[in-house]
Nucleic acid binder design. Structure first.
Lengths: 224, 224
DNA sequence: TGAACAAGACTGGACGGTCTAGTTTTAATA
DNA sequence: TATTAAAACTAGACCGTCCAGTCTTGTTCA
């Protein structure tokens, strides 16, 4: 009796250590758990989401959760990593640059970036990670790398390249200059739109948002 | 016995309704409570801060807290309002505009605004309100009005005035244009500095930050 | 004297995590 | 294909802890 229990324990521990689907579990259970946990954590936050609720919503017993994850904290971290990865997929896909001039590239990029930042799931994750970062610093850093840092890198690379080869920008940019300008561009793009979403203030209409993006691009191209 | 308790109850309710210092309480108690509650909420968040801890830190009994505030939620909201008010005092003080040109005004304003946004207490409150906004929408809206909206208004007014009367900006700005440009300016000013603070990523050195602010002002003046 | 207070016991309930007992799935073997 | 044993699972009881909010019993102060 107790022996079989001990065996289970050790397997449980190893499965959790890797934070991966347990090797011998029924495959759909893991997904059901992470799905339900995502919904609950996003909607309620870490403290208010209870494992009983998550288990019930996943159609799974609490014990099964504990056979996949060491504890609530491990489940939470796994969810954060998974969601961060999922919601930043657009940032890791190479952008189409075929023949477009810098202005139109920046407009497309700006429209996409802003839409991503204002997506409800993105706002919820933002809230979640911001809150968790105080207690789990590695989550904060990981989210920064996957989100903000990635965007800065991409825009900086684009600006740097385009400034080298011609007349699309007033001057040739060094590495550091390009990064500063990228931060300025994404910063002004974001403006207070994301904050408004997070604070429950009404968003501006989409048409107005498009105008705003274009206005940012013009400001950058004139001022850069 | 029970009667005196009933009397206390009704007084408690009225004192809390106004969210002001109870009329008949010893004056320093209220401040001790809000002080301790501020510290605990900022450090731990709403759920993890317990009333026992707050009472202990305030050197006050739990009952005293409940004679000043209806419940934990009311205490929390009062703290949020009070902190929001306190931390946005700089935004409500008229700025010195004596004889300075727009460039230097914007630099001063930018330095101050960024320093304010990156202040540890400000970051903690930001986290707190962002998290609370999902459950208490009025807190979110109030914070937006006191913070972001206020800054946009101020900068927009400044830009609009200066654009009317001369050559400091390339063109005369309408009301709406000035607001857009103000949002762009503060947005690029903030960049990802605040996010880095919130996520626990190392901040850039102060000297570099000053350069960044100046660079933002130049970009705005050239591009506006 | 009476109102505000301190100290802390107490209640009721939620929750994280464990444990038990019985059921289903899997996969190897006869 | 039928058998079977281990592993994964379910349902829910259970434990210990924590906590919001109440109540009691005194104490302090105006």
């Amino acid at each position: 009796m107790t022996e079989t229990v001990q065996v289970r324990r050790s397997e449980t521990a190893s499965a959790k250590a890797s934070c991966m689907p347990a090797e011998k579990s029924r495959p759909d259970k893991h997904h059901a758990i992470t799905q339900a946990a995502s919904e609950m954590f996003l909607a309620e936050g870490f403290e208010r989401a209870s494992l009983d609720q998550i288990a019930h919503r996943a159609g799974v017993s609490k014990q099964t959760i504990y056979s996949h994850f060491a504890d609530k904290e491990a489940l939470f971290k796994a969810i954060c990593v998974e969601l961060t990865e999922k919601l930043t997929i657009p940032l890791r896909q190479p952008r189409q640059k075929d023949g477009a001039d810098l202005r139109n590239l920046l407009i497309r990029l700006g429209d996409d970036a802003l839409a991503m930042m204002l997506h409800p799931a993105s706002l919820d994750l933002h809230r979640l990670v911001l809150n968790a970062a105080a207690r789990f610093p590695e989550l904060g850093r990981a989210a920064y790398e996957a989100g903000a840092a990635r965007m800065i890198d991409d825009v900086a690379t684009l600006l740097s390249q385009r400034s080298q080869s011609g007349e699309e920008l007033p001057r040739v940019l060094g590495e550091a200059e390009a990064r500063v300008m990228a931060e300025q561009f994404i910063g002004m793009l974001r403006g207070f739109h994301q904050i408004r979403g997070l604070l429950g203030v009404d968003a501006i209409p989409v048409a107005e948002r498009r105008d705003y993006v274009r206005s940012c691009v013009e400001l950058l191209l004139r001022g850069g």
